[in-house]
Design a protein around this nucleic acid. Structure first.
Lengths: 347, 347
DNA sequence: TTAACTTCCGGTAACGTTCCCAATAGATGC
DNA sequence: GCATCTATTGGGAACGTTACCGGAAGTTAA
């Protein structure tokens, strides 16, 4: 009674063999139209629903995909997850979601769970450079993020950091800013090096000596940005301070530090973020930032995975362009400030 | 070669039958210690990993659970998802995550996917009052949120809205505020009625006529809150305006409207939010709000599900208490404002 | 010494599906 | 009329695992 109906029940109800019932329900051409209709009716009448476990066993295709990200609670990763979810769903499959918390062991354990669940493929943002783990992963996968460089043979999707940094620096230059101070992520993270390298490159192109840049390390958290900004203000006490933060959370923390110090953004301090989290729109002033196409990242990573599994040609590494969102945390230094005007006696 | 090793490979390698191998790996007591060790070695050597699809087929336990929420991108639901994920993971299972986007059809389709994947149980925040869908769901489930009232027989977890509203109103009274204006959710949502009812109850207890309250409808979005606040300010042009918003996003939108109108929070307008989203900490002023225990909600919903499946006694409906977070969007009207002091000539 | 019991192991069936092969019936061609 | 072909169907095996049952030893008790 409590048992779920199987295809055998459907077959019996329709008065055919289970083979025929299976064919009818899987749109095989080798079945009479009348029979097919009879089976369909029986399936609906009995409340039959295909058992994906059995299908997976027999066909090797579980209808399951995996996503391993640092933390679903982080709005950036939530967007990525949503994008992946959408594409996986469109293909009639389901997504297993895991949070690794940047923990190597946890990641390894999640990967094992994915293998045991016999997922058809996985999308992963690797915690660190654990190339060997993925070498023997045994499941098709695509990568998201900076560490993808380590795996030249697998499809990977990331933001175009170089383009993003250029966008930011161009904007700063256009607004009359000198070389910005930087608040970076921790040295342990690959993204940090990549970001810094891009800044250096673009400084050289603009004849700025990278050695001039003030640099502080954060840890990608609000508190980390707050503390880094305090150190930065202690190092440079006069003049307009321009700060380029490696992510939005640190930028928002920095903004709070500015206010606490009795200084004002953007009058005394300009802040440029990186990520495009929604919270940046709610701060005051709104955070000017460079938005990563998070949802699209998730969609493309999922799509790349399907392409790879289907044997369709791959793009290899793909970098998606970022977008500048102007809000209000950047001063326009090309116009004279009221103070200067007064000082210049131009009133 | 590319084939994943099965328990038969392990058995062959260990020189035992597959029955013995299975027993050894599932910690059955009916196996010699030496044999067990031999099998374990063979399993590791061959890189064997249990096929959960096959286990699920045979035992009826898929090791899969489902979560259906409105939108993983919403920070509140992301926290819920994380809580559920943690508990499910602790029990050695994996979580399938779906976003329904408040769409009835999408929800139904996700529920079907869960059934077909043969999940052992599901955690759902139902889109609306679709009792019949769940009556015939056929899978153990627990519910999150306001609509849970419709299902007295299933375990359900929610925030204690009454307690939360009392907390908020008590705080307002303590700060010298009169009855607050309200920005609510859309009439279509059950949560709206529940929130409003709680406010009315508490007003009556405090001898405030609920009919006095200014009420505006939002749609739980930033833009909705922004628009609602504009209407509110148009309706009450003088005096201190106190607003209790039914969620944080609307509260943040309201805050922007205040600033755009040239008024200042908390000097001219006080805003109290409801949710406890992280963005509330980044606004200026910080949003004073009532925090729902989102992650704990997810944890408890998952735990309730495991309890139900295991046949352990259930609490039925559970309401978790909320917590007031004071930040800075509420004026303290019990102290004289500088303006009044000046007016009273007390200087 | 034999019976009963314990310990350990192997064989087989079953979970629900799909795929392959054979079989039937009717249609077509000569 | 017979061979061949096509359309449609049924039977059985297989996917990898676990549960059940029976059997072969060794152990204990009478």
């Amino acid at each position: 009674m409590g048992r779920r109906p199987t295809i055998i029940d459907v077959a019996r109800l329709a008065g055919v063999s289970k083979s025929t019932a299976a064919r009818a329900l899987s749109d095989s051409p080798d079945v009479n139209d009348a029979t097919r209709e009879k089976v369909r009716k029986a399936a609906i009448a009995s409340g039959y629903e295909r058992n994906h476990l059995a299908v997976g066993m027999r066909s090797g295709r579980s209808g399951l995909f995996g996503l391993v990200i640092p933390d679903i609670t982080n709005p950036f990763w939530a967007e990525v997850a949503r994008g992946a979810q959408d594409i996986v769903g469109e293909n009639g499959a389901s997504l297993l979601v895991f949070s690794s918390d940047w923990d190597h062991d946890r990641e390894a354990s999640h990967l094992r769970a994915l293998r045991q669940a016999r997922v058809e493929g996985a999308i992963v943002n690797p915690v660190s450079d654990n190339a060997e783990d993925f070498g023997r992963f045994g499941v098709p996968f695509s990568l998201i993020g900076s560490s993808a460089e380590r795996f030249p043979d697998t499809p990977s999707i990331g933001s175009d950091i170089r383009q993003a940094v250029r966008l930011g620096l161009d904007h700063l230059v256009a607004r009359g800013h000198a070389a910005p101070a930087l608040i970076l992520g921790p040295k342990s993270r690959l993204a940090r090096a990549r970001f810094l390298r891009s800044v250096h490159e673009h400084c050289l192109e603009r004849d700025i000596d990278p050695a001039v840049l003030l640099v502080e390390d954060g840890d990608y958290t609000f508190e980390g940005g707050h503390a880094a900004m305090q150190r930065l203000m202690a190092r440079q006490r006069s003049g307009h301070l321009t700060v380029f933060c490696a992510n939005d959370l640190m930028a928002l923390g920095a903004m709070l530090a500015v206010r606490e110090a009795g200084r004002e953004c953007p009058r005394d301090v300009s802040i440029l973020g990186f990520d495009g989290v929604p919270a940046g729109a709610f701060s005051w002033p709104g955070l000017t930032t460079i938005e990563k196409p998070a949802r699209e990242l998730g969609r493309r990573a999922a799509q790349a995975l399907f392409d790879e599994i289907a044997g369709r040609p791959q793009d290899g590494r793909t970098y998606l362009p970022c977008r500048l969102i102007e809000r209000g945390s950047l001063a326009d230094l090309t116009v004279q400030t009221p103070l200067r005007v007064a000082g210049a006696g131009r009133s």
